[in-house]
Design a protein around this nucleic acid. Structure first.
Lengths: 123, 123
DNA sequence: AACGTATTTAAGTATTTGCTTAATTTATTA
DNA sequence: TAATAAATTAAGCAAATACTTAAATACGTT
């Protein structure tokens, strides 16, 4: 692995920099997946949606629109993004479609959402 | 609290919708803070930076530039964003500035970063 | 089959984001 | 104090985001 340096400082720890590059390389696939989920949950609207899903188990686009006071298409587009990455999944009942957090991501999201609390700022 | 509905469906659970709105309201401050941290960590470059900081304890902009193979200004701007929200903090040693994860957010970020693993996709 | 409802999709647009290059600040050293 | 080095800031720009409105699907009811 070649090393292009940005600085000329004496303290530059080339061993450390190479180690870091290799470490990143080893977990790149994992980072790819997780940062994608993080990016989705990093949007305030979607974060609220996930929080609501965790508490209510399942909700339909219509519910979200009423709760968050947003248009149905706007909600639908947020849902689509999360479904595309399998953060949420769907169940159809007649013409209403219920969304829930997919099992695959439930544990991960639960740890994050558990930091949401009424009074003290957790993070 | 008034309720504007998006659908006319019979199954609309107004009690549930009102409860959700109130619940969101109760944790709004918390969500504000956490989703801001999430938004920062949701960027792949910044996620890598945080991952590196957790492993290496502290790094300077120059290190990041070398490791991530990015320009120093680009790195600096990412660092600034995270510092503005107190996700990371700084220590000066001569003309190099070392960044580390702030104590305030360490626990929260550690739980998230612990999902980064070499082989299996965790999330 | 025709209509109404829930949802999605598409097209358009304003805002935000993340980089680039150039200029500036801060500190060290000759 | 002049030169160099590390870092930040500023200006500019291309790409990504998140909404809007309008149109299209899918399902259920009459």
């Amino acid at each position: 692995m070649k090393l292009e340096t940005s600085c000329i400082r004496a303290e530059a720890d080339y061993v450390q920099i190479l180690r870091c590059k290799e470490e990143l390389n080893a977990v790149s696939a994992s980072i790819e997946v997780i940062s994608k989920v993080m990016a989705l949950a990093g949007n305030k609207v979607r974060f609220k949606m996930l929080y609501l899903l965790q508490r209510e188990n399942e909700l339909c686009p219509c519910d979200f629109a009423d709760i968050l006071e947003m248009s149905v298409p706007a909600i639908s587009q947020h849902l689509r993004k999360m479904k595309d990455v399998n953060v949420i999944s769907t169940r159809r009942d007649g013409q209403t479609i219920f969304y829930r957090i997919s099992e695959e991501n439930k544990a991960f999201l639960t740890t994050i959402l558990s930091n949401v609390a009424p009074e003290r700022k957790t993070a």
